[in-house]
């Protein structure tokens, strides 16, 4: 009889304590935020056209590079200017400190007259 009463008392005590023991009066969660920024590069010339003047001097144009990673810039080192009649004149290029410099080859006495033009494609590539 004593054992039964003791067992009953223990059960009542446990039931009285359980709700308070297991009640969640606070909770904490940990959030892990993850985001990825992809590689991107861009190049913009300050001017879409370079006026080379009388083709006797070098001319430079500024450009702006925006990159969030290492990159390689590729520029043709030489090119050909062509006039409206098919005459040609070579030139060399160089890039340094955000400038593209065009240097026409020396003009000889037999260089055809005319307006010479060419396009240069400068490529920037993320590594």
């Amino acid at each position: 009889m004593f054992r039964i009463r003791l067992f009953s008392t223990l059960c009542v005590a446990i039931l009285a304590v359980l709700p308070r023991t297991y009640a969640a009066s606070s909770e904490t969660i940990i959030l892990q935020l993850i985001g990825t920024i992809s590689k991107s590069v861009s190049i913009v010339f300050d001017s879409s056209t370079i006026d080379l003047g009388d083709l006797t001097q070098h001319t430079a144009v500024d450009f702006t590079i925006v990159s969030n990673t290492e990159y390689i810039i590729t520029t043709p080192t030489t090119g050909i200017l062509t006039n409206e009649y098919g005459g040609t004149l070579g030139f060399t290029t160089a890039t340094n400190n955000g400038k593209l410099t065009i240097t026409p080859n020396t003009i000889g006495p037999d260089q055809p007259l005319g307006t010479y033009s060419a396009n240069i494609e400068v490529t920037i590539s993320a590594i």
Binding site: S25, T28, L31, S42, N68, A126
Partner: peptide
């Protein structure tokens, strides 16, 4: 909902994975 809104990213913001840990607690 919890909401995360980045700002200040431009072309020079380094490429890569960004992480952070946020702790949210509710308490009576």
């Amino acid at each position: 909902t919890y909401n995360v809104t980045p700002s200040g990213i431009d072309g020079s913001t380094d490429a890569g994975t960004y992480t952070d840990t946020v702790t949210v607690t509710v308490a009576a």
